[in-house]
C-alpha cells in the first residue's frame, strides 16, 4: 500500500503539530479519513463537519470510495457552501 503525502489546510495544521502535510497509507478517501481520525483525534470534528479532497486539482466532496492514486497531489480543504 502506498504511503501518501496528504497536504493539510491551515486549520488542520495545528492538529498535526504544525506540519503542513502528513503521511498516511490509504487507498481511498474513506480509508484516509478513518486513519486520520485514529492518528489525529483532534481532526475528528473537522472530518465530521466535512472535508473535501483535491486529487491533483479535482475536488471530491462526497465520494468516499474515490481511489487515492500514488504520485498525485492530495490536498484537504474545508467544504465550502454555495449561494
Amino acid at each position: 500500500m502506498s504511503r501518501l503525502e496528504i497536504h493539510l489546510w491551515g486549520a488542520l495544521r495545528p492538529l498535526a503539530g504544525g506540519a503542513s502535510s502528513i503521511f498516511i497509507e490509504a487507498q481511498t478517501i474513506r480509508e484516509l479519513f478513518r486513519k486520520m481520525g485514529e492518528q489525529y483525534p483532534g481532526m475528528e470534528p473537522h472530518l465530521r463537519r466535512g472535508v473535501a479532497v483535491s486529487i491533483s486539482g479535482k475536488v471530491f466532496r462526497d465520494q468516499l470510495d474515490t481511489p487515492l492514486p500514488p504520485d498525485q497531489e492530495i490536498y484537504l480543504l474545508p467544504r465550502v457552501p454555495g449561494g
Binding site: 497536504h7 489546510w9 483535491s54 491533483s56 486539482g57 479535482k58 475536488v59 497531489e73 490536498y75 480543504l77
Partner: peptide, 9 residues
C-alpha cells in the same frame, strides 16, 4: 499551485 493549496487542472 492555487493560493488555497491544490494544483489547478
Amino acid at each position: 499551485k492555487s493560493s488555497y493549496g491544490p494544483v489547478y487542472g
